Amino acid sequence: MKIKAFFVALSGLIILTLCSGGVPKQQTEAVQAVQQKIVELEPKEVPDSKSISVTAIGDVLLHSSIYYDASTKTGYDFDPMFQDVKPYLDRTTLTVANQESIMGGEALGVSTYPNFNSPDEIGDTLKDVGVDVVTMANNHTLDKGETGVKHATAQYEKIGMAYTGAYANKEDSEKLTIEDTAEGISVAFLSYTYGTNGIPVPQGKDYLVNLIDKQKIKYDINHAKQQADAVIVSLHFGVEYEDDPNEEQKDLAQFVADQGATAVLGCHPHVLQPVEWLRGKEGNKTLVIYSLGNFIAAQEETDRRIGAAFQFDIVKDGKTVTAKEPRMLLTYLSFSDWQHYRVQPMYQLPEMKSAYEAKKKHMAKLAPDLSFIEKDTSS
């Protein structure tokens, strides 16, 4: 009714203008007032843009020499090993890590390859350096059986660390791992593994570890999209020590992109594999890193000592949520005589310059927009 009244008033003013040969000042002001009213009646909608930042690190795989190096009179202290990279991990909104050696606690006996078991202190260290979520679905999840999984999940709950991919019971497995941020963006984390090194999943207890199954992944992603703005999927897949993804990895990553996931984080090869953007069947863009490599593990080969803190933004414009600005801090695990372990920013190590430049080129070959962090963030 107000818009209709405007046109009646405006028509009258135009007729007066044509008949009189001029527009009185009062009439000009009236037209401007009516025009101003129309602007107020039809405001433009401006999308509500929000963003958060995410960091992902690869395998936290603790071998015997790492335990020995971290041992104290009262337990274990892994904190010094991560201090050089802590500033890069705790500055982003969310940080996720692949805790590959199950945190079954000392009561089960701390152990190394081939059946790993880590003490509770590694959880405390990850919490201290800024990790918010751990992925637990990997080939070592069942190294200490159901008891190990139950202890790990209970300990994560005790220290306030979110986890995904392995659960103590069915009820727990049916709850989505969703992180709600102060910026108003919620992120769901999902995690799956190709297998458990031949250790059978106990009958009727599939909840102990999420195995890769396309129908389950499809259901879980669709379910997560109904409750969270973004969905990050961790996949434990690929061939160990291969620098590039195989066709099976590419196929599964594309399948996940087709379901509308925001990002895919790969683990298992123990070496870095490239970053790539995939286009989903609905036109969405999904950010993929095929392998995050080792973050800390006692493996001597150079490629197995190079890891990454992979970072990207999640931007929400209205109802559209996308990953943007992929960037990476390449890391190097320094040690000598199987002791003095330190995860360090690789760009700070002059002796690694050649390997550093080669790895940068390799990681960006499928994603030219990938940038590399080469500055101190501690201040």
Rank of each mutant, 00 (worst) to 15 (best):
I178L: 09
Q226M: 10
D229P: 14
E183V: 08
K216G: 02
T177F: 02
N210G: 08
D172G: 04
P202D: 13
Y163L: 03
N222F: 07
I199H: 01
H151K: 12
I212P: 03
I185L: 08
A154W: 08
D172H: 12
I178Q: 13
E179F: 12
I217A: 06
K158T: 14
P200A: 13
I221F: 12
P202T: 12
Q155L: 14
I178K: 09
Y207K: 10
T153S: 04
S186G: 09
K214L: 12
K214H: 15
N139F: 01
G165K: 00
D213L: 03
N169M: 07
A224D: 07
A224H: 03
D229A: 06
K144I: 00
H223A: 13
I212R: 00
N138C: 02
A228T: 13
S191G: 04
H151D: 13
D206V: 01
Q203C: 03
Y207H: 15
H140Q: 05
Q227D: 13
A230F: 12
D180W: 11
E171I: 01
G184L: 05
T177A: 08
T177K: 02
Y194E: 13
A162I: 05
Q203V: 11
V209N: 01
D180V: 10
L190G: 00
Q203I: 08
G165P: 05
D229T: 06
T177W: 05
G165N: 05
N222P: 11
I217L: 09
A166G: 14
D213P: 02
A228R: 09
E146W: 06
K158F: 04
E146H: 02
A224P: 11
I159Q: 10
D220M: 09
A228D: 14
A168E: 05
Y194P: 08
I212W: 05
A168G: 13
P202Y: 12
K158Q: 15
G184K: 07
A224Y: 03
Y163K: 03
D213K: 04
E179P: 04
L190P: 00
E157N: 15
S173D: 11
N139G: 03
V209F: 03
E179D: 10
T141K: 02
Q227G: 06
F189C: 00
A168H: 01
K225D: 12
Y219Q: 12
V201Q: 02
V149T: 08
K170W: 07
H223W: 15
G145M: 01
T181F: 14
E174Q: 14
